[in-house]
């Protein structure tokens, strides 16, 4: 399988482990990624003009004829929204008038869905089954919104499906599609932190050994900020938060450093050790 890859701005900095693990897991699964030529920011959630937002995303979509894959839910949602909006001939004409390469349609995929498709057909690649590992599936908001993407927006199940494929146990996680607050965390710190901590507390209550995310902003709120949130709200959480590509990578037997696991704030190493111990026990 050959896909164009849209890394997104965070891939260069705060979401580096998302990018590192995406590339190595795809290579291990035989998915050839070709980084999108001269890609630009999708606008995230900070461009108030819808038309500008569509234009920014459309410039990316026009760079390739291949299906475009991204690991970031925000980019995924924006690229997909743009493709939906560009179905309107009036909008398409307006946007194409300013684009150098013209947009003529695109297929957009999230890494989660690409990886699951390959794994379901090749489960022999799972050399380190994540047996008995209790995983909280955290979708966040934009993976499934707007409608019509990877799964339904209210009760998606695709992450649970992937977790089961890896032989781990998906928990019934009530806040799985509740927004993490990330998009407003800079100017509205308190509001964003309140909801992020609510999600962490709920994961702890559910008995999660690990939380799995599909978005770098969710990851920042739940992982990079976890220690600060614990201090602020006076309650220990101590749950590692893995990108879905990192979780898959562990099950594929890839090394922790290849998956950027040392870049996570809450160390996932106890989880990795547990998984390997379990495998040794059963052997």
């Amino acid at each position: 399988m050959k896909l164009a890859y849209y890394p997104g701005c965070v891939s260069r900095s705060t979401g580096k482990e998302m990018d590192v693990s995406t590339r190595i897991v795809c290579a291990a699964l035989g998915i050839a990624l070709q980084e999108l030529e001269d890609w630009n920011c999708c606008g995230a959630t900070h461009v108030p003009s819808e038309l500008v937002s569509v234009g920014l995303a459309a410039r990316n979509l026009a760079q390739t004829d291949l299906p475009i894959m991204t690991s970031c839910s925000i980019c995924y949602s924006n690229l997909r929204s743009a493709a939906l909006t560009m179905e309107d001939p009036q909008v398409r004409a307006k946007v194409n008038a300013v684009l150098t390469k013209k947009y003529s349609g695109a297929q957009i995929r999230h890494a989660l869905d690409v990886i699951l498709e390959v794994l379901e057909k090749n489960d022999e690649l799972i050399t380190v089954p994540l047996k008995d590992l209790k995983v909280a599936p955290y979708y966040g908001c934009l993976l499934t919104r707007p409608r019509g993407g990877i799964d339904q927006p209210e009760f998606p199940t695709i992450l649970e499906k992937l977790i089961k494929t890896l032989a781990a146990e998906p928990l019934d996680f009530r806040l799985k599609t509740f927004c993490c607050g990330g998009p407003i965390f800079m100017p509205q710190e308190q509001a964003a932190e309140d909801i992020a901590f609510l999600i962490l507390k709920e994961a702890k209550k559910a008995g999660a050994e690990v939380i799995v995310t599909v978005c770098p902003l969710c990851h920042l709120m739940l992982d990079a900020k976890q220690k600060a949130l614990e201090q602020r709200y006076g309650e220990k959480i101590g749950i590692p938060v893995l990108y879905v590509t990192q979780l898959v990578g562990i099950a594929l037997g890839l090394n922790p450093d290849e998956l950027g696991l040392e870049m996570n704030a809450v160390s996932p190493m106890p989880v990795v050790e547990k998984v390997y111990e379990k495998m040794a026990e059963e052997a």
């Binding site: 908001c141 919104r145 707007p146 409608r147 927006p153 927004c179 990330g182 509205q188 509001a191």
Partner: peptide
């Protein structure tokens, strides 16, 4: 308007 996280649950 500045507390909106753009999560789109209202829209869905």
């Amino acid at each position: 308007i500045w507390l909106c996280t753009s999560c789109q649950l209202c829209t869905v």
